[in-house]
Simulated scan of single mutants.
Amino acid sequence: MDFTMPQWGQIITLTFIAIALGMDAFSLGIGVGMKRISLRKITTISLTIGIFHIIMPLIGIIIGHLLGNVIKEIAVMVGGGMLCFLGMNMLIQLLKHKERDSIHIQSITSVVLLSLTVSVDSLSAGLSLGLFASDLVLAILLFGFVGMIMAAMGLYLGRFVGYWLGRYGEAIGGIILILLGSKFLW
């Protein structure tokens, strides 16, 4: 299966966005994983986050497509601006040194709330992508898969490393989103 240069470019761009969005799940996963949760709980949380990383951007992409029809002329700039805003927001939250409260994952409700929390950024990114001509299926599958894998890595690594690794991961994710968004602004 041969891909053209624009197809490769889209795959690479969507992968970077998926990784940037997955950094939040990775970071939070480290904090939760430090409680030495079971491998079964790691699997449950990771799968739920993966599902939410599919649902939330899908909703955003649908809304973005609808808005894209209304604001065709400025859609690319608006989408790029939203990615930059999302990345800057991630960095601002880190600079505020806002420590996350201790999270106790003991019920399916807490797993769903955790998954929703780390997937909200995916809604905004989906909205931005909906304004572009992007491959819907590729985007949501990448977001879901990468979100699930990064959550699992964070949860597992959290059993062995400290909170500092998660903060660096979020910073990298914010920078990636700013760089990708600024590409569409110029």
Rank of each mutant, 00 (worst) to 15 (best):
G162D: 04
F160W: 12
I19D: 01
S46E: 09
C84W: 13
K72G: 03
V76H: 02
I175F: 11
L141T: 02
L136R: 06
I17V: 08
I92A: 08
I74K: 09
I105R: 02
I178V: 10
G130D: 14
G87N: 04
Q10K: 00
G33A: 12
G29D: 03
L185E: 03
L86P: 04
Y163T: 09
D24N: 14
L185H: 01
T109A: 14
L116M: 06
T117A: 15
G80T: 02
D135G: 15
L129G: 13
G50I: 03
S115G: 11
V120Y: 05
S124L: 12
G130N: 09
K96P: 08
W8S: 13
G169M: 00
F184G: 04
G81R: 10
L136E: 09
L177R: 05
G9F: 15
G50V: 04
I175Y: 12
I178M: 10
G64S: 08
L114V: 02
A75M: 03
V161E: 05
L179V: 14
G174T: 14
I74A: 07
I176L: 14
I45F: 09
K98C: 06
I49Q: 06
A151P: 06
L142V: 13
V78P: 01
I30C: 04
Y163E: 06
T4Q: 05
F85Y: 14
I63D: 10
D101Q: 11
G147C: 15
S110H: 04
L129C: 13
A18I: 12
I61Y: 13
R100Q: 12
I175G: 07
M56V: 04
M90T: 07
I55C: 11
G169A: 00
T117P: 15
L83R: 13
L142K: 14
V120D: 00
F132K: 10
M23K: 00
G144I: 01
R40Q: 06
V78K: 02
I11P: 06
M5V: 10
L28T: 10
S119W: 07
K72H: 05
G80M: 04
N69D: 05
I149Y: 15
M23T: 00
V32Q: 12
N89T: 11
M1C: 07
G126V: 11
L165T: 01
K41Y: 00
L142G: 07
